[in-house]
Every structure is written in C-alpha cells, then in structure tokens.
C-alpha cells in the first residue's frame, strides 16, 4: 500500500471508534423512537391521538459529528503522521481523500437509514417529514438525496479541515481573534449579516446564473475545493506544536 494509502488508513483508525459510537447512538435513538411510537402510546400505533405526523432525519447530527470528528482527527493525526516520517503533502492528500470517502459513507448510511425509517412509518400509515417526503420514490430521488447529503457533509469536513490547518499554521490566538470578530459582526451588526449574505449571493451569481438547489450544491462543492486548496500551503508551512 502506498504511503498516501497508509495515511488514509491512519485516518480510518483514528475515526473508527467515534464512527462506531456515533452510529450506535443514532441507532439507539431510532430504536427508542420506535419503542415510544409503537409501544408506549395509545392504540398501539405509536401516535398520540390526533397527531399523525412525525419528524425524523439525522442530517444535522451527522453534520455536527463530521465537524467535531474531522477537527479532532486532523488535529491528532498531523503530529502523529509527521512523527511516523510522513510528509505534509501526504498528510494533506490522505486527509482530503479520506474526508471525501467518509462523507460519502456517512451520506450513504444516512440515506439508507432514512429509507428504512420511511418504510417503517409508511407501513404504519403515518405522515412524516423525512428526507423522502414524496409519495413515491425512485432511484433518481435516492441518488439526488445522496448527492445533496454528500455535498453538505463534505463541505463541513472541508471547512473544519481548513480551520485545523489555520490553527497549525498560525495560532489559537489569531483564530480566536478572527472568530470573535466574525461572531461579533454577525451578532452586533445586522448590516454585517446583510453584507455577508450579499457577498455570498454575489459570488454565487457570478459563478452561476441563478440561485437554486443545484447552484447551492455547486457553491458548496466549490467551497470544499477552495478549503482544501487553501489548506495545502498552510500545512506545508506548519510544524508540530512544541
């Protein structure tokens, strides 16, 4: 196996425990949800009388997990990888490939679970607001949902990877100052929010003709690519924390 392949394996080994725990928790939550719906509530249908709608889906949980896990994984892996004799370029390449693969796996699991949830709730004749709300679903809907989930998850991973690269290249202090300035701008100055939105809109419209789901996805894909491209020179100039 090539050294980049080994780098991916390192990432996998770091991520494995968190991955198992995360999906274990999600499955436990689902099981608990079913228990409440179909056992504890009246009439055995699991629905409170008069309420026939349930809300599900775990995209937000997956996004939060990816954010935290990618951050920890890249933060821990960098010094370990250099200590093994790996180069920064190999680390960057390994992280990039691994993050894309993991995002794809996470999106696929998410879609699979959503399909199972939908099947269960449709079977019991319940309304739901999962990913697959349409009356009938086909391969195209499943595929497009997979792509949307993948792009969103991958963008979060890319953003966090860039953040970790900035932390390694510069320092916590700089990032804290920038983060505090950014949050202050958002919280204290509504005009800053408008300005930020307009900038994003302007960039989106400069690249795409209109803003819709496809262009948002395109924008996120470009964002991911830019994050990885920016992370490379940052990591090339980074050293382990003493």
């Amino acid at each position: 196996m090539s050294r980049v392949g080994q780098g991916i394996k390192v990432q996998y080994l770091i991520m494995k425990p968190g991955f198992i725990v995360f999906w274990g928790v999600i499955l436990a939550i689902m099981a608990f949800q079913y228990l409440i719906f179909f056992y504890f509530t009246p009439q055995g249908t699991g629905v409170t009388p008069g309420v026939k709608s349930v809300v599900g889906g775990h995209l937000l949980a997956v996004v939060i997990f990816m954010g935290v896990a990618t951050g920890i994984q890249c933060w821990e892996a960098f010094p370990y990888y250099l200590n093994l004799g790996g180069t920064r370029r190999e680390f960057w390449l390994g992280c990039t490939v691994f993050n894309f693969l993991l995002s794809l796996v996470m999106a696929a699991i998410l879609v699979g679970l959503s399909l199972i949830e939908r099947a269960v709730f449709v079977f019991f004749g319940l309304e739901h607001s999962f990913m697959f709300r349409a009356e009938t679903i086909d391969a195209l809907i499943v595929l497009s949902t997979l792509v949307v989930n993948f792009v969103v998850i991958a963008a979060v991973a890319a953003g966090v990877f860039l953040l970790v690269s900035v932390l390694y290249r510069f320092s916590w202090k700089l990032l804290l100052v920038l983060g505090a300035a950014f949050l202050s701008g958002i919280m204290l100055f509504p005009a800053f929010n408008d300005w930020l939105f307009k900038v994003v809109e302007y960039v989106m419209l400069a690249v795409f003709d209109e803003i819709n789901q496809e262009t948002v996805m395109g924008g996120l894909a470009v964002f991911s690519a830019v994050c990885y491209l920016l992370a490379y020179p940052l990591l090339r100039g980074s050293q382990v924390k003493n």
Binding site: E76, L84, G85
Partner: peptide, 20 residues
C-alpha cells in the same frame, strides 16, 4: 506522540510497519 491513544497496539504496529 509515537502512538495514538485510541489505537489498538496491533493496529499501531501495523500502521507503523508500513512506513519503514
């Protein structure tokens, strides 16, 4: 810093071996 704390000793040896 030579090993990751959550890695099994067997995995640590496997990963390390591939670099030398």
């Amino acid at each position: 810093g030579t090993f990751l704390k959550d890695m099994k000793a067997r995995d640590a040896l496997k990963v390390t071996s591939s670099y030398y």
